[in-house]
Design a protein around this nucleic acid. Sequence first.
RNA 1: GCACCCGUAGUGAAAUGGAUAUCAUGCCUGCCUUCGAAGCAGUUGUUCCAGGUUCGAAUCCUGGCGGGUGCACCA
Length: 572
Amino acid sequence: MNIKTQIQNIILEALKNLGIEASAITLEHPADLNNGDYSTNVAMAYAKQSSKNPRALADEIKSEIEKNLPKEISKIEVAGAGFINFYLSHDFFVDSIKDILNKGENWGKNDLSNGKKIMVEYTDPNPFKPFHIGHLMTNAIGESISRIVEFSGAKTVRANYQGDVGLHVAKAIWGMMKNPERDQENEQVSYLASYIGNCYAKGSDAYDNDENSKKEIDAINKKVYDKSDEEINKIYAWGREVTLLAFEEIYSLLGTKFNHYFFESIMAPIGEKIVRANTPNVFEESDGAIVFKADKYNPKLHTRVFITSSGLPLYETKEIGLTMTKFETESDLDLSIVTTAIEQGEYMKVVQQAISLMHPELEKKMKHITHGMMRLASGKMSSRKGNVVTGESLLRDSMDVVHEKVAERDLSSDEKENIAQTVGVAALKYSILRSSLGSDIVYDFEKSISFDGDSGPYLQYTAVRANGIHKKADGDGITAAYTDIPTDITVLEKNLYRFPEVVAYAYEQLEPHHIATYLTELASAFNSFYGNTVIANKNDPYAPYRVALVSAFHTTMQNGLYLLGIKTPEKM
RNA sequence: GCACCCGUAGUGAAAUGGAUAUCAUGCCUGCCUUCGAAGCAGUUGUUCCAGGUUCGAAUCCUGGCGGGUGCACCA
């Protein structure tokens, strides 16, 4: 049992002995460590009910608990308006360091989702279109959520859903047919993908501004669907393969491996069959199209078209096919999480309402997580307009900045390359994951690729410093031990033991930023300790304990960074 | 017009209904013969407005204001 639930149980027991029935109580960490390690407000919450004044009740609860005080708690104090503050004992903190070192890479895990199977869908870029910064954002968030879910004991399945049919494909193919000139020597998929991306931008522009081109693109769109034109089939197959390979390169840089790839071309007929089979009992005809009137079931929702009057299945229909396919592909799937930007929020509610009518058992198994938009300082970025800032360019730029920083270092070129990737990705991911999902991020290169203070590289750098201590300790023959321990417990120990609570909370909220915030506080506590103490000093009797403490810190930082999808380098 | 999301130091963010609202950045000052200065220590500056609920509100409710997103055949 962890210390938090232990204290909660003690309080519940005390309340019971005083004749107060409580089911759940809040126990929090006071902002100021002078107010203890844990604090509860129960005395204030139940004062009225038991017609006592809060401080008097707090005193009663305190003496009730003190009758049988566990060794983990050194003292209890009543403070303020009636807060009961708990101070953890010296032994508790020392034991928590041992516990961290024992658990190693399992440190921080919980069992909130033990035995469950959870699918997380994220990234969702479209073949033939550039990988833009929004995809980068969804990828960072989805990967982190996948890992947080994994730490809760669930089996995590990662999925990616990609739009390989539709007007955007026709626009790109039209662009390629009109602009065949490219560097024939350059076979790199990233180059070829950016060529296709440019063709898409040209096609998109022509579609909006030129009647003739619009007709040509519409004609290509039809041929892509019915596969009647050999030349178009060839271009389609090539373009699809090349862009998908380019995406794989990006996933590899970012550290994502998907278990399933779903494609719109496959989902469309599946969804269409379901929609037609459920018309008119769920869906209905209106103006020749098949629609779903979600407002019949929830006045906040609206009516949406699922199949057009010309018989083409729309996004909504494909989404139904996708959802049903997910539950068929992975048997016993307990939860299907989809991560997208807020734009998709309203559509998804309508789609989920329709699915819930057909399959009530799935209603609680679908969860849509939305995040804010990532935009450029100059306004909403748009790959359609051919804006040069793509997710990939951003990633490469970030890596280049790190490269320049380590250029003068005495490191092999492989090491430099490795560091550039690890640190560049960390800077980008952290700048996305540090804020709560709801808020928009205005993208500013200088700030997003920040390397000091509240940043990914700052966390990595702190871990590297801890590494440096280990190297020195090894050289001096200092090994972790718990014989001599300083009487003063530092802020570092007072933060370390909380890690599993933070992970559990991030899981309950499905909000990675709680981990980012915690790690930054932890790093700050470590750096402060590091700056004020010579740790690996042969002549210091406390050195073995402090080396253990540094180890515990490194383990916690490494596991925390893992949950953000960030690697911990050995040097940088 | 309706719906959803967001309004917190100059800037970017955090805060489970709790105690003096926290952190970073920026400005200024000091610290590299120590375990890496991508660091540390110090200094300065804030909850959109109006009501309500509560012992207690940045947080919950109502009404405004400002920004973003979406609302019938794009995804």
